[in-house]
Amino acid sequence: MTSPQTEITTPLQKLEDARFDQIGIEVWMKRDDLNHPLIQGNKWHKLRLNLDQAAKQGQTQLITFGGAYSNHIAATAAACYERGWSSIGLIRGDELANNHQAWSLTLKQAQRHGMQFEFLDRQTYRLRHHQAWLDALQQRFPNAYLLPEGGSNEFAVAGFEKVINQLNQQCEGWTDLFCAVGTGGSLAGLAKYASPNQTVWGIASLKNADYLKPQIQNWIGSSKQNWRLLTEFHGGGYAKSNSEIMLKTKQFESKFQILLDPIYTAKLVWAFNTLLEQNHFQAGQKIVLYHSGGLQGCTD
């Protein structure tokens, strides 16, 4: 198994399609689903510097937040397991506490990697951004490192500098980068380290995601405006889908032999195809679709 300490350059796979040739665009997929078998894609980049920070502080227990289908929960559990650390997941949905049959494959995998769960009702879960509640949580676990939902913070954002450096070496002059968005940290990191003339497009996987924009801009910095957040491709909400998304996913997987996760990358591909059909792109654009992993949940 690849060590999470090992940095590898993941492939940039050219996608060949007659539709692209007709318009005069080039399209690639950045295969960060291949950067680690368990801590895939953007989750490794978001965790890497946070893990380093926890180690510097002498903390070997991580506590974090997520829903039943959270790739971040699975990745955090795996990262702690590999380091011999302990992990606790505060999970949205107290109805799951005594209903193991309803657990997602993502939760089951996290449990196999040693994560302990506390299932919170939705009202309590909403307190995850309230400092007084977080302070009380830290008092309960004084030796733990608290990671926000999705792992998104300034350390997570900084982890994407290496992704952009790889892309610049693999595809000189790329113009557009599409990434899926949950909490906004990946979009912020990619946009922060991309050049001002490169546009990073975020595809929100949850409903009503406009509230993320101020935090994303804060992470990037007020002077940089090279990003967009598209909120109309959520497919019904987080961890939900529709027949069109499922059709486009099957077509993409069949044509390019690349497996997509249903929570994030499938919606990204649907959004890209919709924009393509709407003649959104122009000749000369070099477009990268970012595969953020999450394949442990592809059969949930």
Rank of each mutant, 00 (worst) to 15 (best):
S87T: 03
S87P: 00
I88F: 11
G89H: 04
R92K: 12
G93Y: 10
D94W: 09
E95V: 11
L96E: 07
A97K: 15
N98K: 14
N98M: 12
N98H: 13
H100D: 13
H100F: 15
H100A: 15
H100P: 02
Q101M: 14
A102Y: 00
A102Q: 10
L105P: 00
L105S: 12
L105F: 08
T106W: 08
T106C: 07
K108V: 09
A110G: 01
A110H: 02
H113K: 05
G114N: 02
M115G: 02
M115F: 05
M115I: 09
Q116G: 01
F117S: 02
E118K: 10
E118C: 07
F119I: 01
D121M: 08
D121Q: 02
Q123R: 07
T124Q: 14
Y125T: 01
Y125E: 07
Y125K: 04
R126P: 00
R126T: 05
L127Y: 08
H130Q: 15
A132G: 02
W133I: 02
L134R: 06
A136M: 07
L137T: 01
Q138E: 12
Q139T: 06
Q139W: 01
R140C: 10
R140Q: 13
F141A: 06
P142N: 03
P142F: 07
P142T: 03
N143S: 12
A144L: 14
Y145A: 14
L147D: 04
P148K: 13
E149I: 11
G151M: 15
N153Q: 08
F155M: 14
F155D: 10
F155K: 09
A156M: 05
A158W: 04
G159I: 11
G159D: 05
F160R: 00
N165C: 11
Q166M: 08
L167S: 03
L167M: 13
Q169D: 12
